[in-house]
């Protein structure tokens, strides 16, 4: 066991963990900004912009607001970052080497919730009314999208005959069936909400809440948040690729799938106005919930009668 520790450390810290994910994540966040700019007839930022932003934030003073819960205020971004780091390392290992264990899809779900919880903790620790409103919205949003996301994964599990092993699930291309497609679309929207992109950027709505949950963060702590968000931009689409689109069987195909999901997210982001929190909850619970119940039934029937396309 002991002799493997250096290798685990290498996985987590260098490849495919921290350094690799951060690199990809920052490039992906550049793609998001650049494509948004092109849609808006602008030139947009240069490739190294996200890197410089992080570097600059690291060089700035970190202000801690008076009246805040200091320990929690510092811990929250670290919790978020650690969770995403674990998640992305795990997913990359599954994608590249099929290193897996039974039930890892459930671990993935938990790791995906952690950053949102950390955000809630951090912003409520920062003692600001705007952050407080942002917090309450983020909480409602988490409640709204976690249920459909879990249901979407239930569809996946049914389609794979009760398989809880992500590497096994990644062998199948579930999206080429009615229930799989429905589940994929809903999961895509849940990821949109998890990433805090329009139309679900309700918690960070800068015009309503002056930056919302992150309003009191500055300097290095803000840089950690930004890094965690950039890494989410890698981990969450990667999860979708593994769960729905058949994983990284061939490297270039896997990359193409990842880019496809990124482009879909950006397009949704740029063609929609922000939803109101009650509208978003209704959307996730009523419409997505209904679609998913249908998908679960279809998947069950398809499984029972052996009809693949249902």
């Amino acid at each position: 066991m002991m002799e493997r520790i250096p290798q685990y450390l290498f996985w987590i810290l260098i490849f495919p963990g921290f350094v690799f994910t951060v690199l990809i994540g920052l490039v992906a966040s550049w793609v998001v900004r650049k494509v948004s700019a092109l849609v808006q007839w602008r030139v947009g930022p240069r490739l190294y912009q996200p890197f410089v932003d992080i570097l600059k934030l690291l060089g700035k003073e970190t202000l801690v607001p008076r009246g805040s819960q200091k320990a929690l205020f510092f811990a929250a971004p670290l919790i978020a970052m650690t969770a995403v780091l674990l998640l992305s390392t795990m997913l990359w290992r599954i994608a590249f080497d099929r290193i897996d264990f039974i039930g890892d899809i459930i671990v993935a779900i938990y790791l995906m919730v952690l950053p949102s919880l950390a955000l809630i903790l951090g912003s409520s620790a920062s003692a600001s009314p705007h952050a407080a409103v942002g917090t309450s919205r983020e909480m409602k949003l988490v409640l709204a999208y976690e249920l459909p996301l879990a249901l979407a994964l239930v569809v996946i599990v049914i389609k794979n005959g009760g398989q809880l092993n992500l590497a096994q699930i990644a062998q199948n291309n579930v999206v080429f069936s009615i229930s799989g497609l429905l589940a994929f679309l809903v999961a895509l929207l849940c990821v949109q909400a998890k990433l805090g992109f329009v139309p679900f950027d309700i918690a960070e709505a800068e015009t309503e809440l002056a930056g919302g949950v992150l309003i009191e963060y500055s300097g290095a702590l803000l840089a950690i948040w930004k890094l965690a968000q950039a890494m989410m931009l890698v981990a969450l689409p990667l999860f979708l690729v593994l769960a729905f689109l058949g994983g990284f069987t061939v490297l270039w195909a896997g990359i193409a799938k990842y880019v496809l999901i990124l482009v879909l997210l950006i397009l949704i982001k740029n063609t929609n106005p922000r939803m109101r929190i009650d509208q978003a909850m209704k959307f996730f619970w009523v419409y997505c919930g209904f679609a998913l119940i249908l998908a679960v039934v279809l998947a069950g029937l398809g499984n029972y009668y052996g009809i693949g396309w249902l």
């Binding site: 700019a37 030139v43 930022p45 932003d53 800068e206 930056g211 803000l222």
Partner: peptide
């Protein structure tokens, strides 16, 4: 679009704590 200062990395932010 006509001036687009994001080219230079300039971004308008909503909180003075994020500003340079």
């Amino acid at each position: 679009p006509k001036f687009d200062v994001e080219r230079f990395g300039i971004k308008l932010v909503g909180s003075p704590r994020h500003a340079d």
